[in-house]
Write a protein that binds this DNA or RNA. Sequence first.
DNA 1: GTGTTGATGTCGGAC
DNA 2: GTCCGACGTCAACAC
Lengths: 260, 260
Amino acid sequence: MKYKLLENPNIEEMYDLIEEGLRKKAMINVFCCCKVIYEGRALSQLDFGERMILLKPDGSFLIHQERKVDPVNWQPPKSRTRTFIKDNTLFLESHRRSPKERLEVEIKKTHFVNYVLVEDYQELEIAGYEKDMGDMIMKHPHMIEEGFKPTDREYSTEHGFIDILGKDKEGNLMVLELKCRKAGINAVKQIRRYLTDFKEEENSNLENTGNEKKKVRGLLVAPSIGEDARELLEEENIEFKSIDPPKELKNDKKVTLDIF
Amino acid sequence: MKYKLLENPNIEEMYDLIEEGLRKKAMINVFCCCKVIYEGRALSQLDFGERMILLKPDGSFLIHQERKVDPVNWQPPKSRTRTFIKDNTLFLESHRRSPKERLEVEIKKTHFVNYVLVEDYQELEIAGYEKDMGDMIMKHPHMIEEGFKPTDREYSTEHGFIDILGKDKEGNLMVLELKCRKAGINAVKQIRRYLTDFKEEENSNLENTGNEKKKVRGLLVAPSIGEDARELLEEENIEFKSIDPPKELKNDKKVTLDIF
DNA sequence: GTGTTGATGTCGGAC
DNA sequence: GTCCGACGTCAACAC
């Protein structure tokens, strides 16, 4: 089951659902009246009130009040969450090893609780660094290889945006994925998804037109690449080009600002 | 009604529920597959994936992925949220006036959506940071050393605010810089800047008045100090006093008792 | 409003 | 691990 939800659960139901969610590494969401105690780098307490609690599969633990972007209390990723019942009351507890920190949530009344098995393979693309790299390649396509001609930027597909689309000197389609830092396995998976799309298209074109076969080349562009990423890359017949991102424009700007 | 919840809603149902939640200033929670575009101080895009969206009555807008404490995209309090349907697709949009920022969420598939009218009158009581440390020292100056008398708090200088200014039992000026965590090299540099100011002043006073020379002592107060910081400290003849920040809540559980 | 500073900052990268 | 810098930092407070 992809998700599970309970309205006005009793303590045992709620305990079971949260335990199940934790076991399955789901996102768990609790709307309840609770009291919170935190001990660690600082010390805090928050008396009973209605809040939203969010437990993430990476161990993150967030308690949100009705205002502000930041959670009122939280624990970082890799914290360990535990549930227990004491005096007919459900508690959530989160421990962090180092620095030693503890979060304790006493739950009085729950409106509803749910967990969801989340599928999210996308990473945030933020303009700035990577954008600069794209700008540079659009301006100097020979950096990729002789005869490379970029045709599209941020080309939209069903699986997401392709950073740069172009053709090599033979006329083969090239799908470029840019990373401004060391490329990980996710970068390779990403480019693989794009390629799947294009290869399907390519095959149907072939059937229709009988043209001579053009290849679709996947090319990962990054300053370096991780070991696991390299493996998948070779397996999938994707190419890799090592290019450093253009030297920081941000710093230059900041220096200028500091001067004034 | 205190809350409302829909599983697998269709677009119109979802639109209505969110509009109702916005009108009633509720906390709104959406578990869905969505795509996010942000334009403002930076520029970002996040392709389709499953996430949790949280809209708060103060205008805050959070999009949480399955990892990290921080939301992947967000808008701050006082942003204005708008919903609209285009091409049979539901969009959430959030505008901020200044700086001009826009967040656009395209929703593909929603697992469930709910709103809750939250009642939370409590504020976080927190202890263990720099202000508490300053309070403690002002209240118990002997913690620094016998005969220490603080004279000013947040004393303004050309280079910034001195946390605590005072005099030792000999009448020498003391410049205290407080850190509630392990002090790094920056803390030492900071105190060094303040000292430079005072020593210049001291010298000009000497010339003018011919008074006997009083020293200016710099004192870094922190629970501990890093190695590089220690080096610069000794080089600059700045002193160090190890003090842990107080971790006592002011109204220690009294609030709870008062309520009953 | 603009500006400055502290924070359980968080997060990522380098050593 | 620890240290160091960047961040759409956020949020509180002063001016």
